[in-house]
Write a protein that binds this DNA or RNA. Structure first.
Lengths: 231, 231
DNA sequence: CTGGATCCTCAACGATACTG
DNA sequence: CAGTATCGTTGAGGATCCAG
């Protein structure tokens, strides 16, 4: 109810009052991928207490960032979606995602990926969302056992959850795909090492690898969290 | 000690674990303006409990975002500053600031501004930081009783706290300057209404008003927090 | 079965006091 | 000045329960 205020007339403080609460950024990430029902959110955010989710949704609604609607016709199908004001958060969410990903090489013990996290990561990797007009390819991207798909068409690139029907290229990988997105692993190396498996035209995969980019932090070797005792 | 983890291999989740804690974004804002001592931070963040500040600084240090150093020569002068990795947060902080400011028209009851918040706001308003090479002006900007200064020189624009020595233009205003930065109040209107007082060449002030920009949300009228009962 | 509300426990946060 | 110690309060975590 009483959202914590910082008492400062400052854009960052106002933003922090809304998105600086536990779980809020991840809720917004999931909603940025598409409209979600309450139970979808619960499923996509393992560990979130149901009362915390309910509180956050109410706060976000009060802040004008999220709206609930029940699509006419379906009785029990209340969905949550971002308002226009909520969609304006995209640049900030993407910048935070990039920064976090820049310091993220391998999953920690027990860390998972979700359909929304994969889709959001692909959208961030797509950068400004523009590609040459002539490109016209559907990529199915499977990370672990989670499917998403990337579409390059009409000069634009989009990412959405779920498998693609009629994909031109099917990409299957594990966490090792992180190095590919960072640009430290070439498309050829990814294929020959087995880090990524591709079903389709290797040239189109090379194009994917060259287009999608989420670099590592330049200062990671110096300042990062303790280097993993990797063998 | 045990920072809350979300258990997801996701850039946004990793970022949220670090910057999604109460007060952290504001601490980073102050440090993004310059190195600060512990007591500077306490003074610039009214209401922060001292133990919370100590915890946050330690967590940020562990995360590689902040470093403490004691400048040789001075006994008791430990200062905190952003690491290179911490400075990489600037785009994300700026995007969040812009989003928050887009929904912020007037100060709420009791809200204040601080030297760091003013300086950070001016830096955000400066956009990409580029101006025509020929511009060479020092603006002193006083909001309420807080001074900062903006320098346009060598094609770059910078904002720093404190008054300027040898300012070319002195700008003095209250919260009404928000409309000027948003672009809904013209330089002329700001002067004639008394919302902003200027000591110096009006043309240089007009240039300032045209360059510094933090727009209001386009969807504010529809979705925002309750519209102020403004006359 | 979805969309929560309730209850309890405990860790984190907040305010004040105090110390090297 | 730069924090640590103490203690009360709040909010998160986790399980269960209830209404439509």
């Amino acid at each position: 109810m009483t959202n914590q205020h910082y008492g400062q007339f400052c854009g960052l403080a106002r933003a922090a009052e809304i998105v600086g609460q536990r779980w809020t950024l991840l809720i917004l990430r999931d909603l940025s991928v598409g409209a979600r029902r309450y139970s979808d959110l619960v499923a996509g955010l393992p560990g979130i207490p149901t009362n915390t989710l309910a509180s956050r949704l109410k706060e976000l609604e009060d802040a004008g960032v999220v709206e609930r609607s029940t699509p006419a016709g379906s009785e029990r199908a209340m969905v949550y979606r971002l308002t226009p004001r909520g969609r304006e958060l995209a640049p900030a969410l993407d910048a935070l995602s990039r920064w976090g990903a820049a310091g993220m090489r391998e999953p920690r013990e027990g860390e998972i990926v979700t359909p929304s996290s994969i889709t959001a990561a692909l959208r961030v990797a797509a950068g400004d969302g523009f590609v040459p007009d002539s490109w016209d390819t559907i990529y199915d991207v499977r990370i672990g056992d989670i499917d998403a798909h990337v579409v390059m068409r009409g000069g634009r690139i989009t990412a959405d959850p779920g498998p693609a029907e009629r994909a031109d290229v099917r990409i299957s990988a594990g966490p090792g795909i992180r190095d590919l997105l960072a640009g430290t692993l070439s498309a050829d190396e990814a294929l020959s090492s087995g880090a990524v498996e591709v079903d389709g035209d290797p040239e189109l995969f090379a194009r994917f690898a060259a287009t999608m980019r989420v670099p590592y932090s330049a200062s990671l070797a110096l300042a990062g969290e303790a280097a993993p005792p990797e063998g």
